[in-house]
Design a protein around this nucleic acid. Structure first.
Length: 551
RNA sequence: GGGGCGGUAGCUCAGCCGGUUAGAGCAGAGGACUCAUAAUCCUUGGGUCGUGGGUUCGAGUCCCACCCGCCCUACCA
């Protein structure tokens, strides 16, 4: 977790790829505590975790933030329904559900922010006070249909005719529940005046909103013009009070978005926080589900522009997980809890599957059967088995001591070359958030090594005791083991547990040090794993799983 | 209502600006091998390319209409 303070650089020194002192900053959305964590949330967090681990593996300074969004009417009401206070309610949910979900998927976040924390609420108040003082906020009133589920006022077009028990009423098209008519005084943020600047920004920075399809939607939305944004509510009090008018609380989104800045020290008086903010801000990547893309690609940058703060580099809207063709829904109880999957497949497989099987940015269908098939074919058969057969042969033929390679032939050179290409390709793709492509590149290499072994038939070579054969055998097994050394490094960000097991199995730490200290940039350098390393055949990396548990 | 995306082998999907026998992975079938997690490697794909028209010497690949699913956006007060 939080590595604390100061400008901590990686222990192994050598700061690479000089993007100055800027820390690579990745965020997930802060999740609304009222929902139960499901694999859709875990998907975003996994992506953020893999991305941040990848950059750490590159030797960069990285900050990975996640957290919870805890204000708003929906939370307040469910707290009431559960006979408790909102604060107690959120405390309970955060501790019992949200933080454990991070452990479930083996996420290594640097910080976890809750919007009920003082470091957030105080800074949010200051932020809006400043915008208010600067004339960016004015008082107005608003009247209209309000959906408690969405926490927002709806336009007539957002409503549909109700069915069933709500027959004859107008209901929210998203939640299918009746809206309430609310009239209240509100404060408004002059967002409309930023439309032009936003469009200029989209134009000048095409990478700001990704993928391109999402960007196009955002651009066409803003082109139609923006209206000023209501930023307060006065009909309930579970929120951050507006400092100049405590009858109002800030609209939950307006409060929540600021977490990305408050968590890294925005406006904090402490010198330490100032330094931290200067080093980390702005975010390099905000990962969001495409449903909340607009908040992040329109409202959020407009807020930052108003405050004169630098904008994040990229907001990436990823796709939905579809379960039997339908979007997994928070409000329709089709959500699958992450532990239902990790209990059976483990966290490594969870992380692997969702990033490997689904192009990030597109919707992807999830099914237990597909996951089981990929687990067996790709993780157990291709990858795990390769590690097993190599370790077994080094054990059987060389007593577990990695032999020195003799002369390399064309077959070995092909592996060496392929590895270099794999590292370069995977690095490029992972940095571009093409997790599917990056992981596929690594696994193509694994398949190649399997093929290499089958062709070289070391078990046959081993039958001859003459020196040439033994040298040849040594070369083959060294080549395979050294390939696995690189694979362990490349897969460490994706599957930390099995990668650690492989590192251990290869006896790599003795000579090379901790796995976390290996650089992606060096992973393709041949011959790093020294002869003499102690190779042991540990537990299999991905045991075959028998009964697919009931989905 | 506009706009966009998708509908291709059992499954998940590739197929760029139209051109010889429509591809990959997985599953299935056959073979090789035995170091390994009954794993690996090789070989193997007779699919109305949603439907109906059209353009063209030639169309999943362009045009029109329609059907299905999804997304964005808007209005008939």
């Amino acid at each position: 977790m939080a590595s604390g303070t100061g400008s901590d650089t990686p222990a192994s020194g050598e700061q690479t790829f000089g993007s100055g002192d800027k820390t690579f900053y990745v965020t997930t959305p802060i999740y609304y505590v009222n929902d139960a964590p499901h694999i859709g949330h875990a998907y975003t967090t996994t992506a953020g975790d893999v991305l941040s681990r990848w950059h750490r593996q590159r030797g960069e300074s990285v900050w990975f933030l996640t957290g919870t969004d805890e204000h708003g009417q929906k939370v307040m009401r469910s707290a009431e329904a559960n006979g408790t206070t909102p604060q107690e309610w959120t405390d309970r949910l955060v501790e019992s559900a949200w933080k454990p979900a991070l452990i479930t998927i083996d996420a290594a976040n640097d910080d976890f922010i809750r919007t009920t924390e003082k470091r957030h609420t105080e800074r949010v108040q200051e932020f809006w006070q400043r915008l208010h003082d600067a004339g960016e906020v004015y008082k107005g009133s608003y009247e209209g249909p309000y959906c408690v589920g969405c926490e927002e006022f709806k336009l007539p077009g957002d409503l549909v005719d109700g069915t069933g028990e709500y027959e004859g009423q107008q209901v929210c098209s998203i939640h299918g529940r009746p809206v309430e008519y609310i009239a209240e005084e509100n404060y408004f943020f002059r967002m409309s005046k930023y439309a032009e600047r936003l469009l200029e920004h989209y134009e000048a920075h095409p990478e700001f909103v990704q993928p391109a399809t999402a960007r196009n939607e955002v651009v066409s939305f803003v082109r139609q013009g923006l209206v000023d944004l209501s930023i307060s509510r006065s009909s309930f009090d579970w929120g951050i009070p507006i400092p100049w008018d405590s009858k109002h609380v800030l609209y939950v989104w307006i409060d929540a978005l600021l977490n990305y800045a408050t968590a890294v020290g925005l406006d904090s008086p402490s010198a330490q926080d100032k330094e931290k903010f200067g080093r980390i801000w702005p975010a390099d990547v905000h990962l969001v589900g495409k449903d909340i893309l607009r908040f992040h690609a329109v409202i959020w940058p407009a807020m930052l522009m108003a405050a004169g703060l630098p904008l994040p580099k990229t907001v990436f809207g990823h796709g939905w997980l579809l379960v039997s063709g339908e979007k997994m829904s928070k409000s329709r109880l089709t959500g699958i809890a992450p532990h239902q999957i990790t209990d059976h497949f483990g966290s490594d497989a969870f992380r692997y599957y969702f990033l490997r099987a689904i192009p990030f940015g597109q919707d992807g269908s999830f099914s237990w059967e597909d996951m089981a098939a990929r687990y067996t074919s790709e993780l157990a058969n291709d990858y795990g088995n390769l590690a097993s057969r190599v370790a077994a042969m080094v054990g059987r033929y060389f007593g577990g001591v990695l032999p020195e390679a003799a002369e390399q032939g064309p077959a070995e050179q092909a592996i060496v070359d392929a590895l270099a290409a794999t590292v370069a390709g995977a690095d490029e793709k992972m940095c571009a958030l093409d997790f599917q492509g990056g992981i596929a590149a690594i696994f193509d290499f694994i398949k190649l090594v399997n093929g290499y072994l089958t062709e070289q038939e070391p078990w046959k070579v081993a039958k001859s005791q003459d020196e040439a054969s033994q040298a040849r055998l040594a070369t083959i097994l060294y080549t395979a083991a050294e390939s696995l050394r690189a694979v362990a490094v490349l897969l460490n960000p994706v599957m930390p547990k099995s990668s650690a097991a492989l590192w251990e199995s290869l006896g790599a730490e003795a000579a090379l040090g901790a796995l976390a200290g290996q650089r992606v940039q060096d992973a393709g350098r041949w011959g790093l794993l020294p002869a003499g390393s102690t190779v042991t055949k540990g537990a299999v990396l991905f045991p075959r799983l028998e009964e697919p548990a009931a989905a």
